[in-house]
Design a protein around this nucleic acid. Structure first.
Lengths: 170, 170
DNA sequence: TTGCAACTGTTTCATATGAAACTAAACTGA
DNA sequence: TCAGTTTAGTTTCATATGAAACAGTTGCAA
């Protein structure tokens, strides 16, 4: 016979409740992980590259020449991550590095033809995955999703700098 | 004078283009990272716990008793992550473990009063963060966001099992 | 000049992560 | 009953990660 359990609600001091599966940060994290894991497998299997490498290919795919720092900005990766991805790509002949003329600290980075070839192959694949992901959405929903993500990212950026001030003091 | 650059479009074989900042997997990843980083700092600073620990507190916060495996399911973490979080929580006296009567492989896990106290303090904080994050959204937008995330998660789960079949063969 | 601060990118180091191996317990079927 | 299999959870091991220290270069001000 089951032991009697003290009746206990999930309510907190101010009566609010929290179910993890309804909690936005949790849902975003799970969704992003699911998606990242899938595309990572895809890129790895077909082209032998990681997501950081893919991001670099994506921003250099237009033929532009950027420095490591500029790549870091545009890919939202930190400089360590970029530095390591670049060194892997140098090994696998995906990227070309020449030191800048005016500023020898900055290295000018360009994709090799091999990487450009990957780029032209991978883009349709990436877009196809994205299309699959949003295939259950109507046009209007997809457009709104776009706006909602932008708004939330802006808000998340705000809150990331000094969230303490705007949250209860406990 | 800038060197003449070969005119190069970003188009791929089928004419599609890809800008990383418009690419859904990238945007989801960046947003989830921003959010996770912020809440992780919050939990760490105020309560000295990590996100895995927070998730365990969240699912046990109602006073329920679960096994490690059940926790793994409900928190979308893998068993290794759960095992390690539990061992940390045992050290910091946040969790109580007693081996099951009927099945001694399963450990029955419950929060200690100390953890329940954290729970009651952290929930309003977590909800406040969530509210801030969606503060730029209208009621309708927030409701739609909910639906969109659910739809996309379902789709992402589908695609995570056998994406090859549904994507171009390259 | 030259000495110091700022900047770019790399390396180090300590920790986090996850796949696979492993241990212990519990079923299963002859 | 007792081998073989499945399950729960832990540990190992190889790799990933990021903060901080670092080396080299540039800019600036005295």
């Amino acid at each position: 016979m089951p032991q009697a359990r003290r009746k206990r609600s999930e309510s907190t001091p101010d009566g609010a409740t929290l179910h993890l599966t309804r909690f936005l940060p949790y849902r975003l994290s799970v969704l992003a992980n699911t998606v990242s894991h899938t595309v990572a497998k895809l890129y790895e299997k077909r082209f032998g590259i990681t997501i950081p490498e893919w991001r670099i290919i994506a921003v250099l795919g237009g033929g532009e020449t950027l420095s490591a720092g500029e790549i870091a900005q545009r890919t939202a990766m930190d400089k360590v991550q970029v530095s390591r991805a670049i060194s892997r790509m140098l090994d696998s002949a995906l990227i070309l590095r020449e030191s800048g003329d005016t500023d020898r600290r900055k290295a000018l980075l360009t994709l090799t033809p091999k990487a450009l070839d990957i780029y032209t192959q991978i883009v349709p694949l990436a877009l196809a995955y994205e299309a699959q992901l949003t295939s259950a959405l109507t046009e209007e929903e997809a457009a709104l999703l776009d706006r909602l993500l932008s708004k939330m990212q802006a808000q998340a950026d705000q809150l990331s700098s000094a969230p303490e001030q705007r949250l209860p003091k406990t």
